[in-house]
Every structure is written in structure tokens, then in C-alpha cells.
């Protein structure tokens, strides 16, 4: 049954889309504005001229080279570790027999019910003091403080377990009969077959970590060399008058947000699958 074009539906959706996109457009254009425009009571979306120098100044005054490097290293390391621990765990929980396996799986599921804020206080103390000998700043002296607390994801283990369950046992048994070692079975049969699930988990984890704010902020308070992009930009925002810094903050945000948009638009199929499975964004 073919219907006529639903104009009203198009209109409502289009108004909604403008509402979703406008704040980002405003961010990008604000990044080019000068002090006079930012002080003005009159609002204009477009800057009176495109001041690319704002971006240069943002890169310099925010020390964006350092922020970018920290964000990159942390996000890639966390993604790598989560992929590794999730695949190992997912495989063990489905294809290997060992006592207590089901209890362990239920425990991992249960951990996802614990809200993150509950761990901020104790984990911060542990991180700053580990290994509890006279090392100044503990693990917070290194980037490990930003990486380790995110190195295992209950959701990741769950996702990989669901996926690996679909790999037929007969395939693994055949390889065992042929004399393949357990490590070879894992590395050469299981891992290649889980690539689609790994892609989902990788993008989901990377974007989540790139945007992570509160833990990075805590670690920053003890070691400001560890500032990531969100933390560094937020620090500029909160110390100075917004009319003076809004252009720089917007420039910094544009630099940190736009790459994620590009990645997302191209790889959204994988990302959306991860979100649908997690059911809930933090």
C-alpha cells in the first residue's frame, strides 16, 4: 500500500535534526569569533571573519599536542586491553571447561549493575598510593593510572562470550584432533572468526574512552601532565571569563569532537550495534 509523501513527518523530523545539529554548528562558528563578537548582546551565528588564528592560539595555550597524545595513547591502550581481556574471557567462559565457570560469568554480569561513581573514591586512593611504598604519586605518576581502571569491561566480556558461543565446537574439536595446541586454536581459529564483534567492541570502547571525563579529571588533579582532551579544555573553560575564552574553548572542542564524528559516521553500523547490545549509555 503506497502512501502519499508524509510532509508533516518530514517537517517534524527536520526541525528535530536542526535542534540536534545546531549546537555543534554554533560551536564551530564560535571558534572563529573575535572578542567583540563574544561580548556583544546581539547574537549572530556566523563570525564576521574566519579567524583561523583562534585555532593556532588554542593549540598553543591548551598545549593540545600533549592533550592529543595523552588521549590517543590512553584510548588506544584501553581499547587494546579491553579487546584482549574480553576475547580471552569470552573464550574461556564458553569453550573451556573449568570449575566455577557459570558462577564467574554471573558475577561478571552483576558487576555491570554497580554504578561507576561508587568506585571513584576508593579507586582514586588506591591509584594514587599504589604500590604503597614511597613512590610519589603512586601509579598516578604514569599514564597507567588512566588506563588500568578501564582495562577490563564487563560488557566486553559479555559481548565476546555471546559471539564466541556461536562458533561450533566441532570446529575446535577437529583442530584438536589434528593436534593443534589450545593457544593455536585460540589464536588462529577463534580470534579471526570474532573480527566483526571485535570491531564493534573496539569502536565502542575507543569513543567511550576518548570522551571519558571524570576519572581523567581526578588523575589530572594529582598529575597535570596526564590531562586528556576533555580535561584540558574544561580546565581552560573554568579558570577564565567565558567571553574571553569561549572562542578558544570552541576551537579546542572542535578539534577534539570532529574526528569522532568522522569515525562515527563511517563506522556507525558497528557502533550502533554495540550501543544496542549495551542497552544503556553511561
Amino acid at each position: 500500500m503506497k502512501q502519499k509523501t508524509p510532509w508533516l513527518a518530514y517537517a517534524i523530523i527536520a526541525i528535530g535534526v536542526i535542534t540536534m545539529v545546531f549546537p555543534f554548528l554554533d560551536m564551530v562558528f564560535t571558534a572563529f569569533k573575535g572578542p567583540a563578537e563574544l561580548m556583544s548582546v546581539r547574537y549572530r551565528l556566523f563570525p564576521d571573519e574566519f579567524r583561523f588564528s583562534n585555532f593556532q592560539q588554542a593549540v598553543r595555550s591548551l598545549n593540545m599536542g600533549l592533550l592529543f597524545m595523552n588521549s590517543m595513547i590512553v584510548s588506544f591502550s584501553v581499547t587494546g586491553l579491553v579487546l584482549l581481556t574480553s576475547t580471552l574471557g569470552g573464550y574461556a567462559l564458553t569453550k573451556l571447561e573449568f570449575p566455577g565457570r557459570d558462577v564467574i560469568f554471573r558475577f561478571i554480569l552483576a558487576t555491570m549493575m554497580f554504578p561507576a561513581f561508587l568506585f571513584l573514591i576508593p579507586n582514586f586512593y588506591i591509584m594514587v598510593n599504589f604500590p604503597f611504598v614511597n613512590i610519589d604519586g603512586g601509579l598516578a605518576a604514569t599514564r597507567w593510572a588512566l588506563i588500568l581502571p578501564f582495562s577490563v569491561s564487563g560488557f566486553g566480556v559479555f559481548l565476546m562470550r555471546q559471539f564466541i558461543m556461536g562458533i561450533p565446537n566441532a570446529l575446535l574439536d577437529a583442530a584438536r584432533i589434528d593436534g593443534a595446541s589450545e593457544f593455536r586454536i585460540f589464536g588462529q581459529i577463534v580470534v579471526p572468526m570474532t573480527l566483526p564483534a571485535l570491531a564493534t567492541l573496539a569502536i565502542f570502547t575507543f569513543i567511550g574512552q576518548w570522551n571519558e571525563f571524570i576519572w581523567s579529571l581526578l588523575i589530572y588533579t594529582v598529575n597535570n601532565r596526564l590531562a586528556t582532551l576533555p580535561v584540558g579544555i574544561q580546565m581552560l573553560q573554568s579558570h577564565l571569563d567565558p567571553t574571553l575564552t569561549q572562542a578558544l574553548v570552541s576551537a579546542g572542542l572542535t578539534i577534539s569532537v570532529v574526528p569522532v564524528f568522522v569515525v562515527f559516521v563511517f563506522l556507525q553500523k558497528y557502533y550502533v550495534r554495540g550501543l544496542a547490545l549495551s542497552g544503556l549509555k553511561e
Binding site: 573553560q237 572542542l253 562515527f264
Partner: peptide, 15 residues
């Protein structure tokens, strides 16, 4: 509609 979901809270809040 998805763009804010992949954006850091620092950007959303400041913008």
C-alpha cells in the same frame, strides 16, 4: 539524532 551520544560531556556542557 545520534551525534550527542558520541560527544564528550565537556563539549555538550560548554556548548
Amino acid at each position: 539524532y545520534f551525534l550527542p551520544t558520541v560527544t564528550t560531556v565537556v563539549a555538550i556542557g560548554n556548548v
